[in-house]
């Protein structure tokens, strides 16, 4: 009896096939979309990664160039370079007898050079790249699923 009921409502075979094919195609489409998103992100990340490598190398080259040029600048500003220029331009050293002192309230004659921020002023270290740019789709899913507050489940 049961068998005959089923038989009575059975779809036409082509309908079942279309339904089955549609389901498979839907799944495939979903997978394809996910893959495309994944591929797109991976492609972007790869591109950024390659840029980072190139920039890293450029940074090293620039650091070396800066170091060399700062030394060159220091050479131009060195005492043995400045003194002849000073004399050629007609400057003469003032002596203590010729100095006229003027009272300037609040003037601080000496100050210490700061080549870098002092240790006490150091900013708190934090990541410079947001996690959205580094996590995988799987990481993202994991993070979001774990943050879902399911009813009846103690957090």
């Amino acid at each position: 009896m049961e068998k005959s009921k089923k038989q009575a409502y059975k779809q036409k075979p082509w309908r079942s096939q279309v339904k089955w094919i549609s389901q498979v195609l839907m799944a495939a489409l979903f997978l394809l979309l996910a893959s495309l998103i994944y591929l797109e992100l991976a492609g972007e990340a790869t591109n950024v990664s390659q840029q980072m490598i190139a920039l890293q190398q450029a940074k090293i080259e620039l650091q070396e160039k800066i170091a060399s040029q700062q030394s060159e600048l220091a050479r131009y500003r060195s005492t043995q370079s400045m003194k002849p220029r000073m004399e050629a331009m007609g400057f003469k050293r003032y002596t203590y007898e010729k100095v006229v002192y003027v009272m300037v309230p609040g003037y601080q004659p000496n100050f210490d050079i700061q080549l870098a921020p002092a240790a006490s002023q150091q900013a708190i270290d934090r990541p410079i790249i947001r996690s959205a740019y580094t996590e995988s789709l799987w990481d993202w899913l994991n993070e979001h699923l774990s943050s879902i507050n399911l009813p009846g489940v103690l957090q």
Binding site: A67, Q70, S71, A74, R77
Partner: peptide, 25 residues
């Protein structure tokens, strides 16, 4: 990829920031 690099030796400045020892290429 590996980058073979020798970083710059530390610089030496006077108290006013004038470079006394640096590096050149």
């Amino acid at each position: 990829i590996w980058i073979n690099h020798e970083p710059e030796r530390g610089r030496i400045y006077d108290r006013n920031g004038f470079l006394l020892a640096g590096s050149k290429t």
